[in-house]
């Protein structure tokens, strides 16, 4: 991998720079002033964390996908707000409240993700059906617990700091997101478990004969995905002061879009964290740019839908690889046979 450029990475860097430049030009500089950059960065983590969850599920292969992310994030937020809010006063003990809130939400996420993993690995449910079912179940539980109403978390200082604070001019939530992404990215690339996960996604049959504990790996993967959803729930609560069961209606599509744009292959075995980060920022920049152009939300949904189909086509026909090799960059030679494999598999 050394010395060769990943066309996906080059493309994503260029996209980020391109949108920033277009935004700066169209707005006369307002688009890239520190305030706007901060505001954009603080919007990345919620979706970014959910997209990492989708990526991990997709990497595990065999039709892996996690459709329950945003539902679980909302359930985690609602449960934590009700449970912790009922025992600890956010005004009297802000630190204790915030810590307990965070731990509860992540624990709920972890448990929900583990349920996904156990159902998929244990009873052999397909990931699509399982996470569709749990999506409904998690949303339903959030409705039952909150009676369909928004639950206030108040704004204790530490939670407020996570939602709206900055450290060295960078939003705290964004730093947290980068730290989590780096941790998981390194785990994926450098630890035996991470490498096994990628291998299992590439070829589940070979993985079984190689003696991988596939069931345990699936449970761990979906549990991590769930914990990330729980963390997204904490950030949602911190940024909005309220949590509600139906928050983030189009987040599912956008999380999948981020993963696909990052070059994660839906058939499994492939995904890079750095690409996911750049994909998440590119999408946020584009979203803010559309916002700046005063486009309606409906048009934005249309744009996301078309963008997803567009990127599926790019990956299918390896358009980026073809483009970079034509203008002189050397595409990774091992990329070509992998793409061929994928094409014959479907």
């Amino acid at each position: 991998m050394k010395g060769r450029l990943d066309p996906q990475l080059v493309f994503l860097v260029l996209t980020n720079v391109g949108i920033l430049a277009a935004g700066a030009w169209a707005s006369g500089g307002v688009f890239i002033d520190p305030y706007n950059l901060q505001s954009m960065a603080s919007q990345v983590p919620e979706l970014g964390l959910l997209a990492i969850g989708v990526m991990l599920a997709m990497i595990s292969g065999n039709g892996g996908i996690d459709l329950s992310g945003i539902a679980l994030a909302n359930l985690a937020g609602v449960t934590a707000a009700l449970l912790v809010g009922g025992m600890i006063s956010a005004d009297d003990a802000p630190l204790l409240f915030s810590v307990a809130f965070g731990i509860t939400a992540v624990a709920v996420g972890l448990a929900g993700g583990a349920v996904n993993g156990l159902l998929i690995a244990g009873s052999g449910l397909t990931p699509i059906l399982c996470t569709l079912g749990t999506q409904l179940l998690f949303t339903g539980l959030a409705v039952v617990l909150s009676n369909g109403r928004a639950v206030s978390t108040g704004s204790p200082a530490p939670l407020e700091e996570l939602g709206n604070g900055t450290f060295l001019q960078v939003p705290t939530s964004f730093l947290l997101f980068i730290a989590v992404a780096a941790l998981i990215g390194m785990g994926l690339r450098f630890t035996p478990s991470g490498i096994r996960l990628l291998l299992m996604g590439t070829n589940p049959v070979a993985a079984r004969f190689a003696g991988f504990a596939q069931g345990r790996m699936l449970v761990a993967t979906y549990a991590i995905s769930g914990a990330l959803a729980g963390l997204a729930g904490v950030i949602i609560a911190a940024r909005n002061v309220n949590v509600k069961w139906d928050y983030g209606g189009s987040y599912l599509l956008i999380a999948i879009l981020i993963a696909v744009m990052a070059g994660v292959k839906p058939e499994g075995g492939h995904g890079r964290m750095i690409c996911l980060l750049l994909s998440a920022t590119a999408l946020q920049l584009l979203s803010s740019f559309l916002n700046f152009l005063d486009v309606s939300n409906f048009f934005r949904d249309l744009a996301w839908g078309l963008l997803l189909l567009f990127f599926l086509a790019i990956i299918r026909y390896d358009a980026l690889g073809a483009l970079t090799s034509r203008i002189g960059w050397r595409a990774r030679p091992e990329g070509a046979p992998a793409a061929g494999d994928a094409a014959t598999k479907g």
Binding site: I65, L253, P266, E267, G305, L306, L308, R316, G346
Partner: peptide, 15 residues
């Protein structure tokens, strides 16, 4: 596109 139809139809749903 030869990708899972779920992902394609999520895209077309929004489109």
């Amino acid at each position: 596109l030869r990708v899972p139809s779920l992902i394609v139809t999520i895209g077309t749903q929004y489109t």
